[in-house]
Amino acid sequence: MSSESLNSLARRVLLVVALGVLAIPFVVPTIWMVAASVKPLPEIFASPPSLWTDHPTLSAYSEAFTFQPFARQYFNSVYIALLVTLITLVVSSLAGYAFARIRFPGANALFVVVLIGLLVPSEVTIVPLFQMFKRAGMINTHWPLILVTALAAPCVLATFIMRQFFIALPAELEEAGRLEGLGRPGIWWRICVPLAKPALSAVAILTFLTSWNLYLEPTVYLTSPELFTLPQALTRFTDAYGGEMWNTQLAAATMTVLPVLIVFIVAQRQFVEGLAHSGLK
């Protein structure tokens, strides 16, 4: 009996060690980024590599703001991601609810049409979309980033998640709502949406991250630095001759990553559990 518990203790230690080693590539890059961003330039490539510096400096941080309109770019990314998330929440919970709970002619066919939106890579549509937005005079504005993300592929994924969630709701809830005199919009808003918090939070997280990470679209649609978003701005820390500004880039990257990471760590349970209950299983 005691040898068995010793055995299980050894197994447990082994498990933790194995996971610890496996976690290195997941954790070290972020720590390295933060550490390198406060190093003087020549130390970034010092050998052997070290996470420590004797001469920490924040000059790269201030440089990030003077070299590009970084504060503005930060704001752009935040407001676009929030707006996109908000629109997606409304659009996807409406559509997901309808596809799950309302019977109307052509529902299945239309659902397939919508799902196609999930399969078309954005690289296929970007050239024609560019021409469409050009005719609408919306090149070099944030509109393409907002509209396409909030209504096309990322939103389709959201609609799918919401549909999966609403399908599982017991029908009695709706009956109760109807007895209280609620119409469909009322049932959707008063009864189903409040119950859908886990799915909604999964949608919110996924959509926010998609918008936050967009790279191809801003690269194509935006040409003025004050309209840039963060991912695009991060790759533009090169001096007037194309030379890379390593530490400034790392400082900007750190500022991009840390706030989201902190929000995640604080709310990690909601993050992970929201995703786990997304119905994507």
């Binding site: 997941f26 954790v27 890059p29 972020t30 980024m33 991250l209 936050w212 990470n213 790279y215 963060l230 991912p231 695009q232 991060l234 790759t235 990257a253 750190t254 991009t256 990553v257 989201v260 990471l261 929000v263 995640f264 760590i265 993050f271």
Partner: peptide
């Protein structure tokens, strides 16, 4: 955690 880190960063 890497999931929430910006792809480009």
């Amino acid at each position: 955690s890497p999931v929430v880190v910006s792809v480009v960063a």
